[in-house]
Design a binder for these strands. Structure first.
Length: 639
RNA sequence: GCCCACGUAGCUCAGUCGGUAGAGCAUUUGCAUGGUAAGCAAAAGGUCACCAGUUCAAUUCUGGUCGUGGGCUCCA
């Protein structure tokens, strides 16, 4: 006997349905278009397959690709890929294959390496399975049965996962001969997976641990229609185009040489120009914000690093010591011990705190060869480091200040997309009382809340010496890059026995915060290059203005203009090569110079210049005074 | 460090199933004196990453080293 139920939609309108009717069928009553677009559904907030029978009154919501369904779609695509791989390589053992931001992957244990040529074979097989239009069916079974099923199939990784699960019943999804352990939900049929592309292969450790076997990972992307796939591929092309390594070469900003050493950056004049502009701005802002600037050496005696604990906790990242007069000296991997030595140079009164000492300190850290990446991951880099020393009661205010300063700094460079992570105590190997950790985390969290920024708790992600706030910015590739970090330190004040005299006349331990806003200049500039695609705003552009004379007759006028602008603090460049104008204009565009300024007979006679902005293909005639005003405004507005 | 791929002129890339190599751009030199995205021509430029091995012969095959790329682990 059938019974009526009432299903409530997100807009709270009710729909009548039969008890046990599938989500798919009910969605069809709402709209055939929605039924077509639906990949899965949410029943009372729980994601389920479209085949899910709704047994009673419930809230129902269709999940489409664009509204929360991408992950489901990609996960189904990863099953599809795994099925194709198993058809082509029957001895393949499957590990895990989740959806990730921007696609999916599957880790597979295979007797032979997957060559790039194999990807198209796998894609073809995937297409075949899509054409077979297999139904994707959920099946629930007792965990021991699943273990038996997978043991017989020799799927050791699945067995390992199943054995560690703490549930009685698990679900598998079947499509044709293929089945995969999976929580689901999934799209109903393989034919839903209309457009996909396998992007790359890589090695990946089973469960991410170096101790385990390295599996083969295949990355892919999928979409419900070809158009979306194409525009995604275009996006990837655009990202490639903005790659800071490519632009660094094209714009002659920096280079890294085998002869010099991996991960060691050489800054060319243009790149150094950019870096100096950033550094000058940084220094000015720091003085404005109540910081003092200090300098410290590149090397320090081993006893210093012994005291700081770096030789105990950080040696893997430090280079071998050098011998100076029979004493071991290390190149610095961090600046903090030096700043602490400045602190310890005299006694401090509570009235003198807080102290804010900043330094563009160049540090050297050993990074494993495989992780080096352009400017984003190097072995020698300059941190925009600072250490704050304050009384406990000053802490909340200091955190507020540094957080606000941090965001204003990042915004100045055109970054408005942040994500903040609050990293708490690591499960093992950290120093300090638990109560101190709790208190510090509370201070950090409250400050983040006051700043009204979106944040996430990174459980156990803190440093061994204290909790921290990491601010990440998103680049054009959609990757998050960590630049800023604000870290509590319970360790160093203790180790160096730092003190100040409080109003009670007794010695007290100051609180210490490490912080970097840009992170490292290398990484920051790498991210900046990608963010702007090399088209720097006028205030940052290494060359702001290209001056092109039409013929030799205007060479002096071009040079005079250059001198005048140079005197006003601008960064102009003439191009008086014996090349046609078209050639030199093209070259200036290729170098992404924000303003191109042409001087010919006409301009000299009415004392104007013909100005063309980067990205526009028309030029306007303006007076030199207007040009100067325009550029001044750009710089002042940091455009 | 680990897995896979790669390393040919300053740059981007062809090529050699083993007989020491080419194109475009850039460079230099002529000619052209040009009005907003490449004027014409010529020249020069390479120990084919480095070191071993196999071979009559290696840039090409094998091994190692260094470097680069995509990832993993780690991180500013």
């Amino acid at each position: 006997m059938s019974r009526q139920i009432t299903v409530t939609l997100p807009d709270s309108s009710p729909v009548k349905a039969q008890k046990g009717e599938t989500a798919f069928s009910i969605i069809g009553k709402i709209s055939p278009d929605l039924q077509k677009a639906a990949l899965a559904a949410k029943v009372d907030g729980v994601p389920v397959d479209l085949s899910f029978p709704v047994d009673g009154d419930a809230a129902l919501q269709a999940i489409t690709f664009d509204r929360g369904g991408a992950e489901i779609f990609w996960h189904s695509a990863s099953h599809l890929m795994a099925q194709a791989v198993r058809r082509l390589f029957p001895d393949a053992k499957l590990a895990i294959g989740p959806a990730i931001e921007g696609g999916f992957y599957y880790d597979i244990d295979l007797s032979r390496a997957i060559a790039p040529e194999d990807l198209s074979r796998i894609e073809q097989m995937m297409q075949k399975i899509v054409d077979e239009d297999l139904e994707i069916r959920r099946e629930e079974l007792a965990r021991p049965d699943a273990i038996r099923l997978y043991s017989e199939a020799g799927e050791v990784y699945k067995v390992e996962m199943l054995e560690e699960m703490e549930v009685d019943t698990v679900s598998i999804y079947r499509q044709g001969e293929f089945y995969d352990l999976c929580r689901g939900p999934h799209v109903p049929r393989t034919s839903y997976l209309k457009a996909f592309k396998l992007l790359s292969t890589a090695g990946a450790y089973w469960r991410g641990s170096e101790k385990n076997k390295m599996l083969q990972r295949i990355y892919g992307i999928a979409f419900p229609d070809k158009k979306k796939l194409e525009s995604h591929i275009e996006f990837l092309e655009e990202a490639k185009h903005r790659d800071h390594r490519r632009l660094g070469k094209e714009l002659d900003l920096f280079s890294i040489h085998e002869e010099t050493g991996a991960g060691l950056v050489l800054w060319h004049p243009k790149g150094a120009r950019l870096r100096n502009i950033i550094e000058d701005f940084w220094r000015t802002e720091h003085y404005k914000n109540g910081y003092d600037l200090v300098f410290s050496p590149h090397i320090g005696k081993s006893s210093l690093w012994q005291t700081s604990g770096h030789l105990d906790f950080y040696t893997e990242n430090m280079y071998s010591p050098m011998d100076i007069d029979g004493q071991a000296y290390y190149t610095k991997p961090m600046n903090c011990p030096f700043h602490i030595m400045i602190y310890k140079n005299k006694g401090w009164s509570y009235r003198e705190l807080p102290l804010r000492w900043a330094e563009l300190g160049t540090v050297y850290r050993y990074e494993r060869s495989g992780v080096l990446h352009g400017l984003l991951r190097v072995r020698g880099f300059t941190q925009d480091d600072a250490h704050l020393f304050c009384r406990p009661d000053q802490m909340p205010d200091e955190i507020d200040r540094v957080l606000a300063f941090c965001l204003s700094m990042l915004r100045a460079f055109g970054f408005n997309n942040f994500k903040v992570y609050l990293a708490t105590r690591p499960p093992e190997g950290s120093v300090g009382e638990d109560s101190m950790w709790q208190a510090a985390i509370r201070v950090l969290e409250e400050s983040v809340k006051r700043a009204r920024i979106e944040y996430e708790v990174d459980e156990g992600g803190g440093a061994f010496y204290g909790p921290k706030i990491d601010v990440k910015i998103k680049d054009m590739l959609g990757r998050e890059w960590q630049c800023s970090t604000i870290q509590f330190d319970f360790n160093l004040p203790e180790r160096f026995d730092m003190t100040y005299i409080d109003s009670d006349g007794k010695k007290h331990r100051p609180y210490m915060i490490h912080r970097a806003l840009l992170g490292s200049l290398e990484r920051f500039i790498g991210v900046l290059i990608e963010h702007y695609g090399g088209k720097f705003p006028v205030w940052l552009a290494p060359v702001q203005l290209a001056i092109i004379n039409v013929s030799d007759d205007e060479a002096d006028a071009a040079e005079n203009l250059r001198q005048r602008l140079l005197g006003l603090g601008f960064r102009p460049e003439t191009d008086r090569r014996e090349e046609t104008m078209g050639y030199r204009v093209r070259d200036a565009i290729a170098k992404k110079i924000p303003y191109i300024c042409v001087i010919g007979k006409k301009e000299i006679s009415d004392s104007t210049v013909s100005v063309r902005k980067l990205g526009e293909n028309k030029s306007t005639s303006i007076t030199i005074d207007d040009l100067i005003r325009m550029m001044r405004d750009d710089v002042a507005e940091r455009r």
